[in-house]
Design a protein around this nucleic acid. Structure first.
Lengths: 350, 350
DNA sequence: CGAGGTAGTGCAATCGATTGCATGATTTAC
DNA sequence: GTAAATCATGCAATCGATTGCACTACCTCG
């Protein structure tokens, strides 16, 4: 016999072969007796005996071996930009709430919004034979994941969509969110409303900006292009930078509608540094309603998206893909409803 | 040939066999040429040719197959109570920063502090053949993980330790943290200092309570047992409940040293509800310095622990275990230094 | 120039589970 | 009562990579 080079062979695992020896049947019979689907092809008495033996020996199926044969690992990959961004943990729990009860585990990777990293991590996932991928960090143009999906790997994108592809996606009703928020500001009397837009290479940033322009039009005024500044990242630092840019542009404004909460937080901080009060002098709004927002002063008026729900929805679609439905059977677009959350960062126009 | 029952065989993967056929050598030679260690046993010219072929065919090793043979999956399991607790994401990034560059991926699971779930998830991880586990959700007494470690599975615990076992652990200097905090409160003139202790089935809760008693003694006063209330969970709700209990006990106090930030946040909220001002009337302190604390009013005085650093430290120890060092070679205990962070929730004794 | 090395490859077993087909036993049908 | 159908189980190939050992050159040295 060849030498054993395994790592920790202390108590070697119980295998089908052990159960077969114990019960005096062939390993294939054991395999069938333990498979809920194949079980009916086995005499009931024998199946019971095998299951009892499996139980008493403490058998646990080796998913690695099964995975090699069947090409299913019961593991999915989840790609997000950065787990320390508080918006993502609830999403992950939403995904888990659907997948875990069905026996799936997930490998979570952080792309840090770097394309190289994303490509490398995609390989990391494929090398491990994940059955599918939920991708919450795609760019509007993202050839690597599009290629993977083309090859037949089940993929669903979350929060963002990749254009010119038939990858199913779950997003929020950005249009309604921006529109309702703009209306809210109008009702408070604001007319000169600035927009700090998100990165335009992300569908979220692009959709929200488009929605802003459209909403302004719908409300009877063209969007003032000079009052739109575009951030390069969705973070506080960029929020602050964009607000400074607005201030030094010389334009006047009494409200700033930001493409997400972190931009809004940065903007408020920049206002504070200049002694400008939010909301008394300038109203600021966010998008996402990330956790803890109600503990931070001023409490931010924002658009609540379904975080847990988005995770669930994406997982459910992925499941259908995993169960053999093709991208044609599954609806490409899922838009989740939003809800306006009015707190303290918006006030009547001074 | 048997029927192929694989799932998405669209573009079937390139295997060693394909490269072997392409280059006219045996698959074992290909395997060796692609293995950095075995490579030297191969003629340089042949190795180069094989590598070139692998490259041009777009070969990606199948880790499932390799894992079956070698019993190494290059995947580790990470168990935490709940990813939506903001303390954990930085820890995970710390772990990742060490393991990911070495080719490891991690499967993260949330135990929700439920024992059944923990046991089930432990099986989920073992079934997938993880090479080791970083466990940040252990109880002081935790037979299931102790058993796994006994069986030879590399395990490191993080933030908490399991007693009566030789599982290496990485924790914070709870003693120093509590002691420095108590001294800080004393220096502000407080003498009647309450303690909201954490769950005593977690080493963190137990160590911090013990440290509180010891520190009180060291500072020349016995801990007033009536001023100690124990929470059943580390969360805001319990913080509020414990504070109420303190208030209705009839004891007087001017400061509350809490076993972690969430308890402190809950305590402050409960004070606020009763119209008691923190810090003017009662000082409150936390432990951990979780993210966003500086955005929440009043800014919480707390003990900063190394979150990212703890993840890194645990990962480094796990690595040594993975590389064959036994629990005897590795230091069982790693205590990371803490730092007092004085903000606005503590003030001189009124 | 032949014995003893050594280096480079090939061979084949192996990891553990799955599954199409073969086989033998039993039942059903006529 | 025998042919045919049905059922339960065994057999063996397979997934893709790894690796101990065998084998064949060629090399070195005396």
């Amino acid at each position: 016999m060849h030498h054993d080079t395994r790592r920790w062979n202390a108590e070697k695992r119980v295998t089908l072969k052990d159960i077969a020896r114990e019960t005096g049947v062939h390993v294939s019979t054991v395999s069938r007796a333990l498979d809920p689907v194949e079980r009916k092809t086995i005499t009931d008495e024998v199946a019971k005996r095998i299951q009892a033996a499996a139980e008493s020996l403490g058998y646990r199926p080796n998913r690695i071996a099964a995975g090699l044969r069947t090409n299913r690992t019961m593991t999915v990959g989840v790609m997000i930009p950065d787990i320390t961004n508080v918006i993502f943990p609830p999403i992950l729990r939403g995904i888990e709430s659907v997948l875990e009860p069905l026996g799936y585990a997930s490998i979570i990777v952080n792309t840090d919004s770097e394309r190289d990293r994303e490509i490398r991590l995609l390989d990391v996932l494929r090398d491990r034979g994940v059955d599918g991928i939920i991708h919450a960090a795609v760019l509007r143009s993202d050839p690597s994941i599009a290629k993977a999906a083309q090859d037949g790997l089940p993929v669903v994108t979350l929060n963002r969509k990749v254009e010119a592809s038939d990858i199913p996606y779950v997003i929020n009703d950005e249009d309604a969110g921006i529109c309702q928020m703009l209306r809210h500001l109008r009702e408070l009397g604001h007319t000169r409303i600035a927009h700090i837009a998100g990165p335009q290479d992300l569908s979220t940033g692009q959709l929200r900006l488009a929605a802003f322009r459209r909403a302004a039009w719908d409300l009877g005024a063209e969007a003032e292009e000079d009052l739109i500044v575009t951030a390069t990242r969705f973070d506080e630092q960029e929020g602050a930078r964009c607000l400074s840019a607005l201030l030094s542009s010389g334009e006047t404004f009494t409200a700033v509608l930001c493409a997400n909460d972190r931009l809004a937080l940065g903007a408020i901080e920049a206002l504070r540094e200049r002694g400008i009060d939010c909301p008394r002098q300038v109203s600021v709004t966010g998008f996402n309603d990330m956790p803890f927002l109600d503990l931070i002063r001023p409490k931010l008026t924002t658009v609540r998206i379904q975080q847990h729900g988005a995770g669930r929805a994406a997982a459910e679609i992925l499941l259908r893909l995993l169960n053999g439905e093709t991208a044609d059977d599954v609806e490409i677009e899922t838009i989740l409803p939003i809800e306006l959350v009015i707190r303290e960062s918006t006030a009547p126009c001074p």
